[in-house]
Write a protein that binds this DNA or RNA. Structure first.
Length: 468
RNA sequence: GGCUGGGUGGCAGAGUGGUUAUGCAGCGGCCUGCAAAGCCGUGUACCUCGGUUCGACUCCGGGCCCAGCCUCCA
């Protein structure tokens, strides 16, 4: 039985889908005005893992995963202006870049990927519903605001109380608001800004309303899981609840999931601190599965410290798993989920997606495979190898051929100035020297290759190579 | 200031009221011409002070420290 930590109740709860034939999850995606960094990679990978596991439990086609794209907001407008290019050109290229990054990391595309600019009809309809029910007011500056005082349970998700929020107020109060906690639903257009027609004049949506509109449009007014980064819990998700429940009259979301931050030197990775690494720049030095392994090697709610050292360690660990898989001829027959090892693996994921514990099971399986290989039981080893690969697949890991992974070394793709043919020639030369017991020459060739990052292994009468 | 969450072995990172996490690194052994890989073995680990208990790293309370949110943010 899957249990999920629900941010709303601050405890793990048994997961009971509203409709097991259609488990519905919405995740707040990117605002596309720049390349995705490792913090974004964490959201992508974590919820990809969640959706994979839900599909494992409920069936591939019985899960609907929606992840939106915010393609209109202040930062986008600003960036487009700075670069002197049309907004659609800016967002279009960063959407493409995001898709490339996600694909590289083995993130499956969501079932739906709505965009704010393509959802104006639903956005306006929801704001109108709020207005009709008396939750909205238009201020003197033309902006339309949500009246927080009308929503009694405001603050429940983030554990905040209205009076405390007001007491801790450190923002310059927007003149137009009746209450500093009120937030904008529709922004009146300023000259030169992109805008859409609406009952409140030309303008554009505030950023909270788009998620309410798109999620309920795609998944219905009441769905199972809503996810996103911890920094969205307040105010974004709090506001989503207030908007959605007020507009539709039904309960919005049953389980709220928030992933922890990626940190650099114990500080949150963020644009403003300038301490971020983009996915694509990290992928220049590390194999994508290494990045994925690194992310899933700690629990999704814990902080995740980023450093080359940690990625190197992840690379070494993943190499160990792939090493167990090489030389195995995996059978075509599916391994069984009722296997005791598989059960322990799934039990770990059942416990609020405890990927570190699930990965520990993978390493025990790898050791079992190596033992079987050492004792010559290749068929048994291959059976276990299939299970290892299948379980890894639930995490989106171990999906490359072992040789391909090991020869890319989890690092740079090209061998430093050496072709595969040259490597093989040197290996042949070394083996001739070995046959003649010319150890010095044999070791010289091995050292020469090692200096170029090629590691040789003499195993059962054969010499194989990999990148270190 | 208010509210969250957290402090585990050299590093990373799970977990549990009394019994091996796991990985990386290290050390010893087997294997190897030597290596590499693999296998076997190996670590007075649980911030601090009190309390509960036959027994606490694990529960309760105080303290210290760290991070996050309260402002755009994954």
């Amino acid at each position: 039985m899957l249990r999920i930590y629900n941010s709303l109740s601050r405890k793990k709860e048994p997961f009971e889908p509203i409709d097991p034939a259609n488990v519905r999850m919405y995740v707040c995606g990117m605002t596309v005005y720049d390349y995705c960094h490792i913090g974004h990679a964490r959201v992508l990978v974590v919820f990809d893992m969640v959706s994979r596991y839900l599909r494992h439990l409920y069936g591939r086609r019985h899960v609907t995963y929606v992840r939106n794209i915010t393609d209109i907001d202040d930062k986008i407008i600003k960036r487009a202006r700075e670069q002197g290019r049309p907004i659609e050109s800016l967002t279009g290229s960063f959407i493409q870049a995001m898709h490339e990054d996600a694909a590289a990391l083995g993130v499956e595309p969501p079932d739906e990927e709505p965009r704010a600019t393509l959802a104006m009809e639903q956005i306006i309809a929801m704001i109108r519903a709020l207005e009709e029910k008396g939750y909205a007011y238009q201020a003197a500056n033309g902006d339309l605001y949500y009246d927080v005082s009308r929503f009694p349970s405001y603050g429940r998700l983030s554990g905040k109380r209205l009076d405390e929020l007001r007491a801790g107020e450190r923002v310059a109060v927007e003149e137009a608001k009746e209450d500093p906690l009120d937030f904008v639903l529709w922004k009146a257009a300023k000259p030169g800004e992109p805008s859409w027609d609406s009952p409140w004049g030309r303008g554009r949506p505030g950023w909270h309303i788009e998620c309410s509109a798109m999620s309920t449009h795609c998944l219905g007014c009441h769905f199972d899981i809503h996810g996103g980064g911890l920094d969205l819990q307040f105010p974004h998700h709090e506001n989503e609840i207030a908007q959605s429940e007020a507009a539709t009259g039904c309960r919005f979301v049953n389980y709220w999931m928030h992933n922890g931050f990626v940190r650099v030197d114990d500080e949150k990775m963020s644009k403003s601190l300038g301490n971020f690494f983009t996915i694509r720049e990290v992928l220049e030095s590390y194999h994508p599965e290494v990045v994925r392994y690194f992310i899933l090697a700690s629990h999704y709610r814990s902080p995740l410290n980023y450093s080359d050292r940690h990625l190197d360690s992840a690379k070494a660990a993943l190499t160990t798993l792939y090493t167990a898989l090489r030389d195995l001829e995996l059978p075509g027959v599916a391994a069984v989920d009722s296997d005791p090892v598989a059960k322990r693996f799934y039990a770990a994921l059942d416990d609020d997606f405890n990927t570190p514990e699930a990965m520990a099971v993978l390493f025990e399986l790898a050791r079992e495979i190596n033992r079987l290989q050492n004792s010559g039981r290749s068929e048994a080893a291959a059976q276990r190898g299939l299970l290892l690969r299948q379980l890894g697949g639930v995490l989106g890991l171990l999906q490359y051929s072992p040789q391909r992974f090991l020869r890319q070394g989890g690092g740079s793709a090209a061998v430093d100035g050496l072709s595969v043919e040259q490597i093989e020639q040197l290996i042949a030369a070394r083996n001739e020297a070995r046959a003649a017991k010319q150890w010095a020459e044999a070791d010289r060739i091995r050292d020469e290759l090692k200096a170029k990052g090629v590691i040789l292994e003499d195993r059962s009468g054969e010499t194989t190579w990999r990148l270190g």
